[in-house]
């Protein structure tokens, strides 16, 4: 625990995702599910009721073939820093923002399953357990001991691999480092990305890679116009990719008015 007269230097963990590097391989999605004990899909699950804490969307510039150009955008909880939309709607304080890390946390044991937070999230980054979590026989042996699987009827989402943060915190303590300083760690998606398109770190640390990348040109955030101050920064040199993050919908140049891209 933190002593009364110690000053905690608060971290603001965040990410920079280089869209121009992302090949859309899906390694982040798989690594995330493995790390966080997200079960494989129920036979009846679809892209609308499955659980993917991080989801890679294929987006395109809206032009017809062969002028179509696509890009991949991984979208997870954006850990909004300003009036976090999901936090103040939860009726029983199951969602909170950790002031020490800036991470938006979700307590599945507290969750009523009312799904109001899902309606509140503009990024659709929250997922509901429509089914009982089930693993094929024997596969439960491969579960990560640091993360408790969730029960059906509760909402879950990315928490920047809270288990890893906790382990890093414990290791720092074991090494005798002051517990007022933010720890360095990598969430599973950032670690697994084969092309290292995801950079993770403390945005408050101006020398850190994500902070520098976030400040550099071509950086943007999704739906920045809602002023929720998301902590996931994206980067792209392509104008249309940057525009798509905040474009009105239907996206300019979409194939037909009212016809969105079908690859989402």
């Amino acid at each position: 625990m933190i002593g009364p007269n110690k000053q905690i230097r608060a971290a603001r963990y965040g990410m920079t995702i280089d869209v121009d590097r992302c090949t859309g391989c899906g390694a982040c999605m798989v690594a995330c599910a493995v790390e966080n004990n997200v079960p494989p899909a129920h036979a009846g699950a679809t892209d609308r009721n499955g659980i993917t804490w991080i989801r890679v969307y294929k987006i395109d510039n809206g032009l017809p073939y062969p002028e179509t150009r696509s890009a991949f955008i991984p979208v997870m909880c954006q850990h909004c820093g300003n009036e976090t939309p999901c936090v103040h709607v939860c009726p029983q304080q199951a969602v909170d923002v950790d002031p020490a890390t800036g991470v938006v946390g979700e307590m599945p044991q507290r969750c009523l399953g009312c799904r109001y937070c899902m309606a509140a999230c503009p990024y659709h980054a929250r997922y509901f357990n429509w089914w009982d979590p089930a693993w094929p026989k024997g596969m439960e042996k491969t579960l990560n001991p640091d993360v408790t699987p969730r029960m059906r009827g509760v909402v879950e989402k990315c928490n920047f691999c809270h288990g890893r943060w906790h382990a890093a915190k414990q290791q720092a303590a074991a090494e005798g480092k002051p517990d007022t300083e933010p720890v360095q760690y990598l969430p599973a998606c950032a670690e697994a990305c084969p092309i290292k398109a995801i950079q993770f770190g403390d945005l408050n640390d101006p020398a850190g890679a994500p902070a520098r990348a976030a400040q550099s040109g071509g950086s943007f955030r999704l739906l920045e116009k809602l002023h929720t101050d998301p902590k996931i920064y994206y980067r792209s040199k392509r104008d249309w990719v940057r525009a798509s993050a905040n474009a009105p919908h239907p996206f300019a140049g979409q194939h037909e008015a009212g016809k969105e891209n079908h690859r989402g």
């Binding site: 859309g24 899906g26 999605m29 798989v30 995330c32 599910a33 493995v34 997200v38 494989p40 899909a41 699950a45 679809t46 892209d47 499955g50 659980i51 993917t52 989801r55 890679v56 969307y57 294929k58 073939y65 693993w135 094929p136 596969m139 079908h262 690859r263 989402g264």
Partner: peptide
């Protein structure tokens, strides 16, 4: 592959599953 690959094939359409085809509208 692992059943968890449903994240890519079934719970998102990031990769095309073997039982799907893509057509122009």
């Amino acid at each position: 592959g692992s059943p968890i690959l449903s994240k890519m094939y079934q719970e998102s359409n990031l990769r095309l599953a073997e039982d799907r085809v893509v057509l122009h509208p």
